[in-house]
Amino acid sequence: MLMNSQDVQPLPGFAVPVHDSQRVFRGILDAMAHPGKIVELTDLPDAPKALNKTAVAICLALVDFETPLWADDAISAQSQALTHIQFHCSCPITTTPEKARFALLSKGSDLASLKTFCQGTDERPDLSTTVIVQAEGFGGGEDVRLTGPGIKTETTLSITGVGTEFWQAVRDNTQGFPRGVDLMICTDNAIMCLPRTIQVEA
């Protein structure tokens, strides 16, 4: 029989689809409006292997049939991960990062450059890819200082569980403004955003 094995089947989505997706959307909005702010998201549905709960919740809230999704090799290798997202979001899966509106990166993935993703155009910077980066946690790593729109003075924070080239890639991402990508950093229970306007100082 087709699709019988439990580990390739999708998991349950939001328990109360309308309220849960609104709550997650509100959290994302708050995080995106205040770069560097760690916004906690609670009571999220279970996530398949290779994805954390917050990353899945973001997909369930934002991704739909109009937004092609790209996932890195480690995530694509876990068939349940994409089955789960596709089942709930009905989104097309693309293998070309340039064509993706959302991209999913696995924990600790070597993020050498964000240039492979769609940067948008000067007229339509909103067409860029939004990159969902999975991380271990906030704090406990090497601190960086963040300034820019949405931050009153400055914010100091660190992220563990991201690739070594991560901060350099974020710095390079700000150079082509208004083109560039926006990053959502997800841990198991919180989200923090680094839009293309962020200024990173070591």
Binding site: P12, G13, A15, P17, F87
Partner: peptide, 8 residues
């Protein structure tokens, strides 16, 4: 049974 997609 587990509800994968709640009735909507």
């Amino acid at each position: 049974y587990t509800v994968l997609r709640t009735p909507e």
